[in-house]
Design a protein around this nucleic acid. Sequence first.
DNA 1: AGTGCGACCCGAACGC
DNA 2: TGCGTTCGGGTCGCAC
Length: 272
Amino acid sequence: MPELAEVETVRNTLKKRILNKEIKDVKIIYAKIIESDLEEFKKVLIGNEFKDIKRVGKWLIFVLKDHYLLSHLRMEGKYFIKPSDEEIAKHEHIIISFNDGTDLRYHDTRKFGRMKLIKKEDLDTTEEIQKQGKEPMDEELTPSYLLEKFKNKRLPIKSVLLDQEIISGLGNIYADEVLYASRINPLKEARILTKDECERIIKSAKEIILKAIEMGGTTIRSYTSSLGVTGHYQDYLKVHKKEGKPCPICTTPIKRVKVGGRSTYFCDVCQK
DNA sequence: AGTGCGACCCGAACGC
DNA sequence: TGCGTTCGGGTCGCAC
């Protein structure tokens, strides 16, 4: 379940492995991943090369000559690098072959991920990218920015933290962790949050994301043949998936509730 | 505009 | 053991 930190780790790792190599073939095994015209997709990629990889929120942006390939991993998308002569494994849906005998393979158990090819000049009008809110590490993510975004939201703060148009990059796991670290009840209406609570959200989000990137980077180094590993951040979770386990602060059992259809874990003593 | 919910997928976990 | 059922995760589209 890649959130911003995992996507950043994938970006950094892929950058070391796939840049400036000519693409000589593209195989599309499961076409619904790709939102562009399939023939156009192949035509643009073959003979092209990846010049760089950028990221906006949870979107990976592969930089080609005149195009960007946007890739969203959703829940289970992963990239692997394998020799081109290796058999195509279950759940490998898109195969991009380079002229050095290796492949970049997109693997997605649930088939929820998406790819989209756009012309570089269309980036400014591409909604998926332009709609993204401020990232946790962005200096422009300020309490006044959040107060403004929250002011008409009657939704629980947990749901609002998952809104990528406000803070870009948080998913279900880190949203729970951020609220726990901020001592805020996930069910609280976003519009009644105080400036101090917004400050705590920002501070916690920065710390948690940076820590997770660090962990992802540490883990990924031990991998040689494949990529897309999500890292060891699981070892640092305080509340997410910890129903019934003692709160690290007060030892009260962690509660689990549904918020906006999503499992939400919190301590009802520490988070008021 | 804001909100709520089903749809998209399929493996894992669960219930019997 | 084996079967059927439920759940989850991010995002979009649709209805209200």
